[in-house]
Design a protein around this nucleic acid. Structure first.
Length: 196
DNA sequence: AACGAGTCCAACCGCAGGTCT
DNA sequence: CAGACCTGCGGTTGGACTCGT
């Protein structure tokens, strides 16, 4: 149903990583005009990007309230809990975690938690909750159905492992030496129109 | 020091559903 | 009502980075 929407083969449309210049143009445009129809916004801002790409960049990276990295133990538990309840409804889960994006949670789940579960699977998982692996297949299982999130062996395993998962990822760690979006947004505080 | 394997994340793609004309 | 267009979602992937040998 994208029909001919934003997925264009137009050679004028840029793809791939965003440059700082593009980020600044997009941020500045939205700061001054607000969000709107993304395709129009992309054109009006003079960006050679699809509206879709602009939206994604804004929501996942540029938005001032977006929090990046350092998933806290509380957030981690919440993700596990909500995933056990809702399955791969990443955007729904993300809404329960202020400042987190669905993309970040999805990545986090796939790279950390899912791997951890898989590892555990080799030992005691199979006997305790064989159905849990269906989570990747959108098998939405309620907490009550699965027993996860209360005192199930699976949840205990996960909870016990949280300590080891979290070792080396202390929360609240500063972004050492990197230019961050907070810097940009604090700059915006002092200058209402830094570009134009 | 070099290189291959593994990990992580930003960004893309295709699809579904909603809204507008 | 039908078709065009837009947004949002979930899955996937390319490539940068890290780590082990």
């Amino acid at each position: 149903m994208d029909k001919k929407a934003s997925t264009s083969h137009d050679p004028d449309i840029r793809k791939g990583p965003w440059t700082i210049e593009e980020d600044l143009i997009l941020m500045n445009y939205i700061t001054n005009h607000g969000e709107g129809v993304w395709n129009t916004l992309a054109r009006s801002a003079g960006l050679k990007r699809t509206g879709k790409s602009c939206r994604l960049r804004w929501l996942n990276y540029l938005r001032p309230d977006v929090r990046r990295g350092n998933i806290t133990p509380e957030e981690q538990l919440l993700i596990i809990e909500l995933h056990s309840r809702w399955g791969n409804r990443w955007s729904k889960i993300a809404r329960q975690l202020p400042g987190r994006t669905d993309n970040e949670i999805k990545n986090y789940w796939r790279t950390r938690i899912q791997k951890k579960i898989k590892d555990d699977h080799h030992f005691d998982y199979q006997q305790t909750a064989p159905a849990f692996e269906g989570s990747t297949g959108d098998q939405v299982m309620s907490v009550e159905d699965s027993g996860i999130g209360k005192s199930s062996p699976v949840c205990n395993t996960i909870n016990n492992d949280l300590g080891s998962l979290l070792v080396g990822t202390p929360s609240g760690e500063p972004n050492d030496g990197f230019w961050t979006l907070e810097d940009f947004w604090s700059m915006q505080m002092f200058s209402s129109d830094p570009i134009n």
